[in-house]
Simulated scan of single mutants.
Amino acid sequence: MDKVESAFMTEPPQHPEVLEAVLSLPQNYRTVIYLYYYEGYKETEIAGILKKKVNTIYTWMYQAKQILKKQLGGE
Rank of each mutant, 00 (worst) to 15 (best):
F8L: 10
P13I: 02
Y38G: 05
M1A: 14
L19N: 12
Y29A: 10
N28F: 03
T56R: 02
L68Y: 11
I33A: 05
L19T: 13
R30F: 03
Y41Q: 01
T10W: 09
R30E: 07
I33P: 00
Y34T: 04
R30H: 07
K65W: 12
Q63I: 08
G48K: 07
Y41G: 01
I46E: 03
T44S: 12
Q71C: 00
G74V: 08
V4L: 06
Y36L: 09
P12A: 04
E45G: 14
T56Q: 11
A7Q: 13
G74C: 05
M9S: 14
K70E: 15
P12V: 01
E43P: 04
Y34H: 14
M61Y: 00
V22T: 06
E5R: 15
Y36G: 00
Q63A: 11
G40N: 08
V32S: 04
K65R: 13
E17G: 03
L35N: 03
Q66G: 02
P16V: 15
Q71A: 08
E39Y: 01
K53Q: 12
G48W: 01
E43D: 08
Y37K: 01
K70A: 14
A7I: 04
Y62G: 05
Y37G: 09
I33G: 00
L35F: 06
H15K: 11
A47Q: 06
V18C: 09
K70N: 13
I33L: 04
E20R: 15
M1N: 13
K51P: 00
R30G: 05
V18N: 05
E20G: 10
A64W: 00
L19F: 06
E45K: 11
P12F: 03
T10L: 14
Q71F: 00
V18Q: 08
I57K: 09
L23Q: 13
V18M: 12
I67E: 10
A21K: 08
A47H: 03
